[in-house]
Design a protein around this nucleic acid. Structure first.
Lengths: 197, 197
DNA sequence: ATTAATTGATAAATAATATTTACCAGGATC
DNA sequence: GATCCTGGTAAATATTATTTATCAATTAAT
């Protein structure tokens, strides 16, 4: 019954899991192809069977993470009314994601943005999709006067995500705990005060 | 007359300049030791005479940049009164720095934070010094009621620098122009609204 | 002034990593 | 039963980073 390619071959799965496992503790640069192969229990060559190179694998891991994140975000927004309510939810959910998934935080905050290939990757496509969702909400908020006019939507987005990312950076770098609720509350309050009409 | 080690040997200077030149256009990962040596017109071995490895050289380049940045910031603050006035100046100066120095922006926003050695480097020491200056100003602002209470100083700092960094990220990545004055104005307005009592 | 140390630099060897290639075994296919 | 995918291996090769041995020109010391 199972379609054309529902399950990925065992070796491939082991490689992906090995990469995740290694990224939990170390940064990309210190992880070698050989490390990945040993951790996965496969041969180095197999990695190149399924991925172009180390970064390609990295982008794939990010893509998987981002897919579930985006799905969660979309579900979170269902049934909510009002731009600010939606933004509040997105802020909380984003922080919660970084707080509970160090690998996700590390990849996106520290590892991908310094390579050209990332911006051609499927993972980046998902990031852009998320970005469009945010921008739409902000513009809707400006339209119905929940958010004051005169500030371009991209500044507001930068403020929201810049603040979130900075607040979660030490989580990614030093494995410091992030208090999701408190952080979300403070950031939301600060930003909402800043953008209210 | 010249002191113990005022001038660095020509080869060393050429290496540092080569690294700066290459970082103007490409990311660290795509720059090889050989690239640096060729650009500098020296042999590869010489690089290891003066620097532990590629990252050590990167940190040195950042340190040089940060020294002049910090000096400028300190001068900027002279004669200013009031926490908000000082913060406004720091925001403008930081944006201006990123806007006019792509190498500086690239190194600090994209290249260093994913390695452990960075956090032991002299460059990072300077970053911490800057950070202390900011935190002091914010706390002083809270004390004399220019800034409202109840928000911890580190949240405010995260908001300020997260927003700035996010706003300058596309400058570092895609070499997009940053409109310093406009960006500074918008960010300042947004943040100050967010933190006023 | 002559020798010894230090300094700035090179060229070549070695080590570490990444990547490609050739090959193999076990199904599915026909 | 021959053929052809598929998932996989092992070994060769390429690329990049790093170390070592050496040298000429100063500088310092006798």
């Amino acid at each position: 019954m199972k379609g054309k390619r529902v399950v990925s071959p065992p070796g491939r799965t082991k490689i992906i899991n090995a990469m995740r496992e290694l990224l939990e503790e170390r940064n990309l640069n210190s992880i070698t192809i050989s490390d990945i192969a040993v951790t996965a229990g496969v041969t180095e060559g197999l990695i190149y069977k399924y991925f172009k190179d180390k970064r390609d694998l990295l982008h794939y891991v990010l893509k998987e993470h981002y897919e579930v994140f985006l799905l969660q975000i979309k579900r979170d927004l269902k049934g909510l009314e009002g731009a600010l309510n939606k933004l509040r939810k997105i802020i909380w959910s984003s922080i919660e994601r970084y707080a509970n998934h160090r690998v996700f935080a590390r990849i996106i905050l520290l590892e991908v943005r310094n390579s050209d290939e990332y911006f051609k990757s499927e993972a980046y496509e998902l990031v852009r999709e998320f970005n469009r969702i945010i921008i739409d909400i902000i513009e809707q908020g400006i339209e119905n006067s929940e958010i004051r006019q005169g500030l371009s939507s991209s500044y507001i987005r930068n403020a929201i995500f810049g603040t979130i990312e900075h607040s979660c950076m030490n989580r990614a770098i030093f494995n410091e705990k992030v208090l999701t609720d408190e952080t979300a509350k403070n950031i939301t309050e600060l930003i909402f005060n800043g953008i209210k009409p």
